[in-house]
Design a protein around this nucleic acid. Sequence first.
DNA 1: TCCATCCGGGG
DNA 2: GTGTACGGATGGA
Length: 817
Amino acid sequence: MGERIRFFPLDVTYKVIDEKAVIHLFSRTEDGKQICVIDGNFEPYFYAIPKKGFSVKEKIEKLSIERDNETYSVAKADMVKKTYLGKEVEAIKVFTRLPRDVPIIRDIIKEWEIIESVNEYDILFARRYLIDKNIIPMLLYEAEGEFINLNLKIPGFKAEKIEQIADITLTKPRILAIDIETYTPANRAIEPEKNPIIMAALYGDNFEKVVTWKRFKTDLGYVEFVGSESELIEDIKKHIEAYKPDILTGYFSDGFDLPYIKARADKYKIKLDLGLDFSELRIKKGMDITAQIKGINHLDIFKFIRKIMGPSMDTETYNLNAVAAELLGEQKHDIDLDELSHTWDNNAENLEKYCKYNMNDALLCFRLTEKMLPTITEIVKVVGLPIYDINRMGFSQLVEWYVLRQAPLFNQIVPNKPSNDEIQKRRMQSIKGGFVFEPKPGLYSNIVVFDYRSLYPTIIASHNISPGTLNCSCCEGDAEKVPLENESYWFCTKKKGFLPSIIEDIITRRARIKEILKEGKGKHIMLDARDTALKLLANSFYGYLGFFGARYYSIESAESTTAFGRFYIKRVIQKAQDAGFKVLYSDTDSVFLTLDGKTKEDSEKFAEKINAELPGLMELEYEGFYPSGIFVSAKFGPYGAKKKYALIAEDGNLKIKGFETVRRNWSFIAKEVQENVLNIILREHDKEKALEYVKKVIHDIRERKVPLDKVIIHTQLQKEILDYDSKGPHVAVAQRLKNQGVSVGPGTLIKYVVTSGSDAIGRRSKLPDEVDEGDYDAVYYIENQVVPAVERIFEVLGHSKDELLEHREQRKLEGFF
DNA sequence: TCCATCCGGGG
DNA sequence: GTGTACGGATGGA
């Protein structure tokens, strides 16, 4: 009888040993040791689907060819009953001797007359293994087998049997962050072939190190001096090996740090055999550079944040400073990197601050990784691929690999990726989106808001939308048609489709998590993260159906999804009007009504009635009741009129959408006036009071009674100063800060006050410290801050901008311009 | 206006 | 490694 071990798989590859592909699961054991569990009991295969009525199994079994003195042959061929795009098929599961034989055998079989199609020939062996053996990275498994010597840096264990023993997750993988500084003179390009790495920082759990090769006096404990750049490279290699990370993380390390280190190591002929199997750090070039180390998940946290978190973040740029500012509330050290090379050459005694800077970058990267880890882990668990893989995927790829993992459970053969021609065709196609009912500007009372919970996912599930159920012959003429004018689509009503089944599963899993979260007290970081991961996936399905690269691309399905979306929201609008409610506004999945004399209970009953008629998982949710609200006309953006409204809830909370208040680059006084005006109007319904209040504030500004700290404007620099076309006041201030030797860059928060005078506005914008109390430009704050903040609100109430300003000032202003 | 190329991040 | 990106801005024809 063999031994038993418990382990969390983290990375998976395979090696050919004795003419056989052997899976290697690089893992962490339950008691924290590294181990490589190997499994030789898995064979490469793909599917061949013959044309109807043809028997092809024997021909395939006999297939064997010679090429370059190598023999490629089919190891085995099994007849299997499968489902392919909604149809039952008799396929052949074609086994080859090695993974690399698959494309060769496939190419031959593909050309045969009697073959309808070949499928699943491009699913990497290691991934195929994880799917077929139902192994999910970062979960706990138990293997039975024996320890063997494998010529690896870590012990080997040959498994005869592997099974999951409980739903236990590795929550504390060992993380090591890396960041390098290179010799790059000001205004010069980054040139790895030419310029050395001069510092490298590593930050981990109870571990911090900055390695550099110029000596200077310092008390910093973490600084380590070596004699040369090549020694620096050897040194960081040694530290990484000693730390034994599960995750090596960097910020843009796919595109910068690791390729740079590799380029410099190559120059000195240093072997960067960081892989746990002694393989070298691999830089894969192409359109997109990636860096991979076998056995260690290299995480480029920048990539994850930009691709996955990006859409839900405020920042426009994803540089470390801006991202750390938003996610951690921390910034990079304020130093001028342009001077580093000069300091390195001439003033080594001043290098300490650069070491601190270097360390801080590694620290920020470590913290970002820690912060993202729960979400990353849950995505890994939902999609079922290692951190390294999911780190480099976008939404559509995550959906696709989720689908690929579910496919065997539903006995599905998965369609192939589109050809280039097909992609070109698909790129031409576009579809109609959600329905928008434009609000009429005005002040309203007794507003009820409803929205469809997860509209598109529930439509896909409830209407059985997928390429496999589209226009099925079994329901032709019987099934309800998709509400599209120029098309005649229907989806099967007799058999649940594959995609609708798995999306339904995601929706119900989310509902269960929500239940638990509702019941339980305190924080559930893991459940929150799981909900985030599932939500992300569910919301990506509709986009996936319309994504040109998708295996399950179906423009008809995507079109039908939005068509049903428009249908259901329009139906709510129609029925609400029929029932005597007034519809104020609607966008895609939500609708705003006024009671118009009816009661809140009436609206709840109305929603119940709507829900009784909705299919499957679809549900119109009561979002809230608002005693009053104001809709304001807004500027037209690229997608039509932008929504701009404010509602007040029964508990007095304001719900503001689209107003400038939510943005940072307004002075406190402008935000305060806007919020107070909204409060007076929505709470007290007193237009005159609001008007008088604004007049009073304008008067106070003019009298300079408003304290300086209320006129400070905070604006975050979104890009490099040079990259701004129009240099607004904050850019001018940033420029002056830079001239004074202060390091400013994207993400830096600029605080300034516009002072009085007749100069250009940029010149009059000063740092708060430089301004005396009361020395602000009253006209600017009235005209460019306070008035614009409330102008549109008063417009709705029938008061013009001029009424906000007293006559005398108005004349003065006119004279001014 | 259309098509192709470049860029992001990093020093 | 049973494989290869993406979407938006910019600039030239």
